[in-house]
């Protein structure tokens, strides 16, 4: 059965995934909009950086974050100067790492959804004297709704499944950085296969439900990662 520390890990994982997804929707929406509409020569470089976590092994990302956020890294020096302290081994650090790690899973579906909104609709709205914000709220948002749902589900699910990054920057502290995937790994390493099975099975079930939701939501051909 699930032990108390298993439940702690589940709660922590959901908290991390929820916080990360919320932040990513807030940060990712303007970024995805810009990527979808801009003619700037910076478009491709930015898109490449956003996509980087898709390609990099999570342990590489985690290792560089450990260096960057450490006392000798530029980010670590900044956070110390700001009085926040160092980010590794803290929940905040995990949120920062997860936002970077899950970024493409949120930004890319949003960008696809925004790109699918035809320019003529925006122009029509503008001729009716809608402000850009009005247009975004009343034209773009409803049309991109399924893109938002996909982005949120993928961002959340991907953060739940995160392992390598957390392993590198987390330090395995109960109720602070010990998430489900790390807890499962610990169970397996300690040969507590029963406990591992309980957690792992719930994770498989969770993934199935999420993917089921995703696939039954999507309009044919509308979802692309």
């Amino acid at each position: 059965m699930l032990s108390e520390s298993d439940i702690g890990a589940i709660v922590l994982t959901l908290k991390l995934a929820g916080t990360t997804t919320a932040l990513l929707l807030v940060l990712g929406t303007p970024l995805a909009w810009w990527l979808a509409r801009t003619q700037s020569r910076w478009k491709n470089p930015v898109a490449v950086v956003v996509a980087l976590p898709l390609v990099l092994p999570p342990t590489v990302l985690g290792f560089y974050l450990l260096l960057l956020m450490g006392p000798n890294g530029p980010v670590g020096k900044l956070t110390q100067a700001l009085g926040i302290g160092l980010l590794p081994f803290s929940f905040t650090g995990l949120v920062v790492a997860s936002v970077l790690y899950s970024m493409p899973f949120v930004v890319q579906p949003l960008q696809n959804a925004f790109e699918a909104v035809h320019e003529s609709l925006l122009e029509a709205a503008a001729t009716l004297r809608a402000s850009p914000l009005d247009t975004f709220r009343h034209v773009v948002l409803p049309l991109a709704r399924s893109g938002f749902a996909t982005a949120a589900i993928l961002g959340f699910a991907h953060t739940v499944g995160e392992f390598g990054v957390v392993l590198m920057v987390g330090g395995n502290i109960p109720n602070e950085t010990r998430v489900m995937s790390v807890q499962i790994y610990d169970h397996v390493e300690a040969l507590r296969y029963d406990n591992a099975h309980w957690l792992a099975a719930s994770m498989v079930l969770f993934s199935l439900v999420v993917l089921w939701a995703l696939y039954s939501k999507r309009a044919p051909g509308a979802f692309r990662v």
């Binding site: 450990l66 260096l67 956020m69 000798n72 890294g73 160092l86 590794p88 081994f89 590198m168 330090g171």
Partner: peptide, 8 residues
């Protein structure tokens, strides 16, 4: 790694 990067 935790120690060599100065985080611990």
């Amino acid at each position: 790694q935790f120690i060599s990067t100065g985080n611990a």
